[in-house]
Design a binder for these strands. Structure first.
Lengths: 340, 340
DNA sequence: CTTGCATTGAGGTGCGCACCTCAATATGAC
DNA sequence: GTCATATTGAGGTGCGCACCTCAATGCAAG
């Protein structure tokens, strides 16, 4: 039979009340008592029954995803996965909210975050672009004892918060390696397109990409990053112009999560030129384009995994539990037509 | 406040006892009562509290991984991950056992499985090569109400059991695509090495590999599969001979999970010839070889994910619960030096 | 020795549900 | 109508723990 708290009390030679005090780190316990209980835990192999704990605490957790309002298919995917998790976690007494706020004004984001307290929420997973204001607001959230997860976003990593997402430098490097090897030994230029280069993740991907191309594929030359600002007309214009000025373009790398706008522009402008195309994130669009062989490879991070990981982390932090780090590392996936 | 079973009874206009009968599918309940309760569940949004259920049932689950005795690093990795899961699940009243038995004699495996009953175990995850005897033993296990997971192994999929692992045809196709595109337009032969081609997964990978090479890379010619039987001397011999007879070999594809023996043989025999190398599974060996650029790409399935998925599935089946299918699909990962 | 404070023990309650028993009522066959 | 059987209700117990109260003991300073 598995030992209970009662067995533990007996083994430690103390009362149940003291065991409770030690296990839940309540005040007014002598170091001696703590030692006795700790030793007994080791000796008899006591493990708290999480079901009984959950039942007795009878606490409902509430977590919130704070996502941008503007986005395309990848954002939709994230919201869908978060919605799934919300339904599933209903059973486990955890509320999952999905909020969308405009991210263009850092002050507004910071203000939004300031309104959150430990009484409102146990944890937040925030996907917001890098800015000192937001960074500061997140730090203050942590101090108010709200668990914070930096979610797929380009913040400098906060010491006291967890990060869920891929290493964007490595993701860029992976894109570079795939692009370089897929192109073969044909020399030429690589067009690099982003929604904006203001975001930290874009910068890191670009750096990773360039480092590999420069080191391993000297016959290839990445062009300066084009910024679409998620505007189809602008994208059409600058991409068409770039392709005209660089007839020796052999590949396109789209380093933002939303590839639909830039790639539609590329395809309408490319003529009959065969281009190697690498993009980020699995979406209905990129999936279809892989199937049609209009994209050669997609570098992706699984949004479902990201959502679940963020929730597991917030839950573990709220319970002061450790978690299995290896399970929470989001993989940099390489998607081809063949392994969809 | 979240509705409890008591609230549900009230809302349905029945007693707690009847609610209990309906929820736990006990006998002697009228269809009318079932309908009333089901309707009330919908209406008030009742969800069973899993913590309370677990506590009241006070059941300990026990699951077992049945793995081969012989193997190399990938097997070690699996065992390590299963051990991790065992420790973590101790808290949740679930015993995880890790058994290793010789897999060469199907009768022996079948006999081993026959000794398992629902009184011994709630579920088993079996990694055994295809054979009618084992297949039959698994079916009889299912009939004895033991939950069965076909674990990373080449069984034909049983209808009444779950499968955890990748689609091996697709994995082979992915390897083919990566190899083909990495090689470039240089024509030549591809050496294909396996531990044995008796296993279904080897056959499927080979088929997937060939289908892509033939369809998309007609200038490349895969050689007949070499079988090492996990014997270093034999591997050395046949690989050396094959390389001698085929000086135009441009690539090597190792389709077994354990690549150390065959690749060591390749490297000792290849001379200064530059070969594109694709292998399967992440192990300390393949990881190091990726870093050293002696392997170009590894097609992998995450053993930690596989172990956890098998356990989640067995647990869900034991509780007659549904599970989130998308979370259980094991991805075909493409590992490069850059995204390790 | 007294006072004050820190520490401990004993005991109770409740979390939401599963599982059990026994009596009461409904339903159908005849 | 009677009987047998199917269905229902009432009520209790226990799962392992958190959280609370109150009294009892220890210890040190004065």
């Amino acid at each position: 039979m598995r030992p209970t708290a009662k067995d533990l009390a007996e083994a430690a030679g103390v009362s149940l009340a003291t065991v409770d005090r030690v296990l839940n780190e309540r005040p007014n316990v002598s170091p001696k008592a703590v030692r006795k209980v700790a030793e007994a835990i080791e000796r008899i192999g006591f493990v708290r029954n999480p079901a009984a704990v959950a039942l007795a605490r009878n606490k409902t957790y509430s977590f919130r995803f704070v996502l941008p309002t503007s986005g395309d298919q990848y954002l939709a995917e994230l919201i869908a996965r978060a919605g799934e998790a919300k339904e599933i976690l209903r059973a486990d007494s955890t509320d999952v909210e999905i909020a969308q706020i405009p991210m263009n004004d850092p002050h507004h984001v910071a203000k939004y975050l300031s309104a959150i307290g430990a009484d409102t929420l146990d944890g937040v997973a925030v996907m917001a672009p890098e800015s000192p204001q937001v960074r500061d607001a997140l730090l203050r959230l942590v101090e108010r004892d709200v668990k914070v997860v930096q979610f797929l976003s380009g913040q400098e990593r906060l010491e006291r918060a967890d990060y869920v997402g891929i290493d964007n430098f490595a993701a860029g490097a992976t894109a570079g390696k795939i692009a370089g090897r897929f192109i073969g030994n044909r020399p030429g230029k690589i067009m690099v397109v982003a929604e904006t280069m203001m975001a930290l993740d874009s910068i890191q991907r670009r750096l990773g990409f360039d480092s590999i191309i420069n080191a391993q594929f000297p016959h290839l030359h990445p062009l300066p990053s084009l910024e679409t600002y998620a505007d189809a007309n602008r994208a059409d214009l600058i991409i068409r112009r770039t392709l005209q000025h660089n007839p020796d373009t052999v590949a396109v790398y789209v380093l933002s999560s939303e590839a639909r706008v830039p790639l539609s522009a590329v395809w309408s402008a490319q003529g009959s030129r065969p281009l190697t195309v690498v993009a980020h994130e699995r979406t209905p669009f990129s999936e279809q384009a892989l199937m049609d062989e209009r994209i050669d490879a997609v570098i992706a991070q699984d949004p479902g995994h990201a959502v679940r990981s963020a929730l597991r982390i917030m839950r573990a932090r709220a319970d002061h539990r450790e978690l299995l780090a290896s399970q929470e590392r989001i993989r940099i996936e390489v998607l081809l037509k063949e392994n969809l």
